[in-house]
Design a protein around this nucleic acid. Structure first.
Length: 598
RNA sequence: GGGGACGUAGCUCAAUUGGUUAGAGUACCAGAUUGUCGAUCUGGGUGUUGCGGGUUCGAGUCCCGUCGUCCCCGCCA
């Protein structure tokens, strides 16, 4: 139907007879001559209709409206030099047309389809008409980027000897971790499949099967609450390798990320990517996914306050807590109302409050705590924090973990407020040596990563005596404060795996029921192996500078996990429920509300 | 589950202390217009103020409930 796309005609095509197809972007009717900007995913070309060329074509052009689908035939002509449009790649030419076919008409779109206007439109409307939203150049670009990056990843991994293997979407629920999406079985009444939270066990079994290097662009499902960077279904670049150390994984991912940065047009990055131990990440940045685009690290000032008159700090230190500080350089003029907001945030994060000192340009310390500070403490703080006139210093005092987390959050918003975060910068870091276990709310041990994660060999001695001290061979890759992915070296020894389950307090019968297949498999010669999974949506989001992974997913869900275009989830027929042996037990208060079937 | 922001024309927004017929830009429709490219000019308001209830002489505005979207906390091995 077409000889060219709407993005490719140049001066070199002048004189050629061409056929173009696309959507009407705009119609400019001058009474005589009519201009139509014709758009497809490749670009925009100006088409000119003159009644002297063809009255019939002119009539149809005049009747065309935005988003009509048309096909035109015409001759490529140069534009007079002063009428070229530098905003268009095709701006030096136009197509003089005497033939136009309206392939399809369009209703008036419910919102403007140009990027600038659409950015202001409420997101629910864009989602309800996602197919129109996707017509916008920005969304076309995002989807195209996504495609190109996945292509680059596949080529890279193929060359590195990886095999792409699909694993089941209908699998078995594993009660740890996230809530599962369940699929009822019709054939076996009362039983359910679960959609995979990740292909974790399958990929480990593939190592056992001898597939050496596996990868998959894997869809994963987690029934948890949504965020800007979390969707109930998302995509991972999932991989697993046999006979590897963490170094091997770092090397492969470093190379992969370098390729992706290049494919996204962000140039070369220095390799190897920087690394940081988990403890350092927590102590310096207060996060296991530190944003290392800027400094403003935490400093432990407990020693400065060793004999302090300040009761709050003294009390914390007496109980074995710490006092840590952030110096927001040059932010001494931060308003009290902002400080109130940040204090509320600190309290929300578990601190009793947020002590702070605003240093005036003259060097005067303006602070509710200033009068309690001794000269020695003043000097100690000045020296240790490099305090200068105009600085803002904030303190957190509590248990180490609480202070770290709370000040870590304050660091991010204070850094943002101070304009320290360069949105064009890409700062990667590995975070290594995660703890193997953590305590949950009930005080029980649970696996920080997952129960198949291998402990550090040198920490094995503490596995029973001091499990919280045991480090895992687990690692995350972080970009600009976003967790891009994580993985670990797995346990391949069935005895150690059984020991892990025991330490985690999983009863023997339950181990057999939930993991018996895995332990049995590991009894048949499991190679040492490890892997990693990268969140593809987050990666693409960061590469295209998006605010949310919804920007890089063609058909995302809302915060209530609804698809506003399909109207999913929806009710189903009683017969469908009977087939899968399900009887509904709905809350009584408002049975009429909720998503209607449709 | 909790905290916060928002909901008025197709879209983005305005509307004084609760006060007359709810406006503007844009889109849309009609007409004019032969070099525009955010075309221009003239004319046209197309509205269940998300929904339900309440207070009031009178509600877009106040109160209660509810629905929806977004951000954050919890949650996400």
């Amino acid at each position: 139907m077409r000889s060219h796309t709407c993005g490719e005609l140049r001066k070199s095509h002048v004189g050629q007879r061409v056929q173009l197809c696309g959507w009407v972007d705009t119609v400019r009717d001058h009474g005589g001559v009519i201009f139509i900007d014709l758009r497809d995913r490749y670009g925009v070309t100006q088409v000119i209709f003159d009644p002297r060329d063809s009255q019939e074509a002119w009539d149809r052009a005049q009747g065309s409206r935005g988003e009509y689908v048309i096909r035109i035939e015409g001759t490529v002509e140069p534009r007079p030099a002063d009428m070229a449009n530098p905003k268009l790649a095709t701006g030096e030419i136009e197509v003089r047309s005497n033939t136009i076919t309206v392939l399809n008409r369009s209703a008036t779109p419910p919102f403007p389809l140009d990027d600038e206007e659409a950015a202001k439109v409420s997101e629910d409307l864009r989602m309800a008409y996602r197919y129109l939203d996707l017509r916008r150049p920005q969304m076309q670009k995002n989807m195209r980027y996504r495609h190109e990056m996945v292509q680059a990843i596949r080529v890279y991994l193929d060359r590195a000897g990886f095999t792409d293997i699909e694993t089941p979407m209908m699998t078995k629920s594993t009660p740890e971790g996230a809530r599962d999406y369940l699929v009822p079985s019709r054939i076996l009444p009362g039983t359910f499949y679960a959609l995979p939270q990740s292909p974790q066990q399958y990929k480990q079994l593939l190592m056992l099967a001898g597939f050496d290097r596996y990868y998959q662009v894997a869809r994963c499902f987690r029934d948890e609450d949504l965020r800007a960077d979390r969707q109930p279904e998302f995509t991972q670049i999932d991989m697993e390798l046999s006979f590897v150390t963490p170094e091997d994984i770092y090397g492969i991912i470093d190379g992969l990320l370098a390729i992706i940065m290049k494919a996204a047009g962000h140039g070369e990055i220095a390799l190897p990517l920087p690394r940081m131990k988990y403890d350092d990440a927590m102590n310096r940045f207060g996060s296991d996914k530190p944003d290392v685009r800027f400094g403003m690290e935490m400093t432990d000032v407990s020693d400065v306050f060793a004999g302090t008159q300040l009761k709050v700090f003294a009390g914390v230190l007496a109980k074995g807590g710490v006092v840590k500080a952030l110096n927001a350089k040059g932010q001494g003029n931060t308003s009290l109302s902002v400080m109130d907001d940040w204090t509320a945030m600190a309290k929300d994060a578990g601190l009793g409050g947020l002590a702070y000192i605003r240093v005036s340009p003259e060097g005067e310390w303006k602070s509710p705590i200033a009068k309690f500070l001794s000269e020695g403490e003043r000097q100690g703080l000045t020296k240790k924090l490099g305090m200068q006139p105009g600085d803002l210093v904030m303190f957190g005092a509590d248990k180490l973990a609480t202070v770290n987390t709370a000040l870590g959050r304050i660091r991010l918003i204070a850094g943002e407020a101070a304009g320290l975060i360069d949105p064009k910068k890409f700062a990667f870091t590995w975070v290594t040596d995660f703890p193997l276990f953590e305590r949950n709310d009930e005080g029980e041990l649970q696996a920080m990563h997952h129960p198949f994660t291998s402990p550090h060999a040198e920490d094995l001695a503490f596995l029973d005596s001091d499990p919280l001290r045991v480090r895992a061979q687990a690692y995350d890759i972080v970009l600009n404060g976003v967790e891009l992915g994580g993985g670990s070296i797995r346990i391949h020894d069935p005895e150690l795996q059984a020991r892990m389950f025991k330490i985690l307090g999983i009863p023997t019968a339950e181990i057999e029921d939930r993991f018996g297949h895995l332990i049995r498999a590991f009894g048949y010669g499991a190679p040492p192996h490890g892997g990693i999974a990268l969140g593809l949506d987050r990666l693409i989001m960061l590469m295209v500078g998006g605010e949310s992974i919804r920007d890089v997913i063609a058909f995302p869900k809302t915060q209530k996990a609804m698809d506003l275009m399909m109207n999913a989830p929806a009710r189903v027929d009683a017969k469908q429920l009977r087939d899968v042996h399900i009887r509904l037990d709905l809350p009584v208060e408002n049975p009429a509300t909720g998503p209607a079937s449709g």
